[in-house]
Amino acid sequence: MAKREVDEVSGTETTGHEWDGIKELDTPMPKWWLGLFYACIVWAIGYWVVYPAWPTLSGYTHGMLNHSQRDDVTANVAALKSARSVKEAALRDASLADIQRNPELQQFAMAAGKTLFGDNCAPCHGAGGQGARTYPNLNDDVWLWGGKLSDIQHTITVGIRSTSPDTRQSQMPAFGHDGMLKPAEIGDLAEYVVHLSGRPANAKAVRRATKLFADNCAMCHGADGKGNRSMGAPNLTDNEWLYGPNREDIADQITNGHGGEMPTWGGRLSPEEIKALAVYVHNLGGGE
């Protein structure tokens, strides 16, 4: 480095760097800046002393405050729970009419129910409760086990064909698979069910299947095929088909007697959570 260059205008030295004729002044930093730097170092040392900082062989230094984010979370969750407890208690004791009369309680139940639904129910019933083949749609007005708030609450609590001793239980026999009916008879019955739902069907097959239906199906589905909620037997006269609406689908169901399983939530969710969930499902639009 040869001669030190001093900028004419400012009287300040330059760094010697030059870009397209523009030179950089080597202005010294203000002293307080240095002060800030040292202050940060002091702050950091204070931080080590006060907060958890260094790993040790068997753990870490806890610091004077013995602070732990895990404890914070636990405390926050507990605080949240106690903050919610008032509304949860109100929700537990309220009837459907009470809840609907009280917009605040209704909103509380809906918000809680929505989260719970997303966490627990959406994998099978869909994010909007729209259902899918073999998983019931919760938006419509078709209910296998009843659509009153108390019915929904009970179904969620005990489940269907679940491990709970109180589970809702129904079993469609596998008529074909277990050799109770011959394939031709099953074909006729499928035709009969199509006829029940108001669609055009083969009149001869329907006539042949009339007795078959009365002997094998009417016990659960009713002589008119309108189903029976106390047994979870679906209505065969409406537009809703859990296992598909076509003749082949219906014949397959008579042959194999599919039945899905809904787990029991009684042990896993609190009664208040189940109530909120039931309010949410009820309010999807199909509630009775």
Binding site: G126, A127, G128, G129, Q130, N137, N139, D140, D141, V142, N235, D238, N239, E240, L284, G285, G286
Partner: peptide, 18 residues
């Protein structure tokens, strides 16, 4: 408007939007 489900078919075939 609810978009999930986009519409709901009721037992009697009527259509409902929420």
């Amino acid at each position: 408007r609810d978009r999930n489900p986009n519409f709901v078919t009721l037992a009697d075939g009527a259509i409902r939007n929420a």
